[in-house]
């Protein structure tokens, strides 16, 4: 290593990999990963979130899992929670939908209303 710049570049790179362990106040993406969720395909949804978020270097977004919230027929369910605790619930997710939620909701702050629980109830 020949300069401080090289050190800092390495720091940024490793930091992204360690983000999971740091406290942060950004968005939280919670994927339902109980038996019902997994059976309905929650795993690829979760992986898509993790990969897309890493690809776009969204360092303030944390992906976590949760258990069954009781709406098994709407699984895979994903909730996006902002720092103030406001929640958007997406239902019947798949990998493509997950990628779109990342691009529109997480990056641009625009809720993908057609995937939300509200849209599902109204249909």
């Amino acid at each position: 290593m020949k300069s401080l710049e090289e050190l800092r570049a390495l720091k940024e790179k490793t930091k992204a990999q360690m983000n999971l362990r740091n406290e942060q106040n950004g968005l939280r993406v919670v994927v339902g990963m109980a038996t019902c969720g997994i059976a309905a395909g929650a795993r690829p949804v979760m992986n898509t979130f993790v990969e897309e978020i890493a690809k776009r270097q969204l360092n303030n977004v944390k992906v976590t899992m949760t258990g069954c919230i009781g709406l098994c027929k709407l699984e895979p369910i994903v909730e996006v929670i902002d720092p103030s605790g406001d929640k958007v619930t997406y239902v019947k997710m798949d990998a493509q939908k997950a990628a779109r939620v990342v691009a529109e909701h997480l990056v641009n702050g625009k809720i993908v209303s057609e995937y939300t629980i509200k849209a599902e109830e109204n249909s």
Partner: peptide
Amino acid sequence: GHINPENIDEYIAEDGYEALG
């Protein structure tokens, strides 16, 4: 209890060697 002590990259990610620099 936060970093892997056998990995210098993780120390650097937590501002390691920044003070020396």
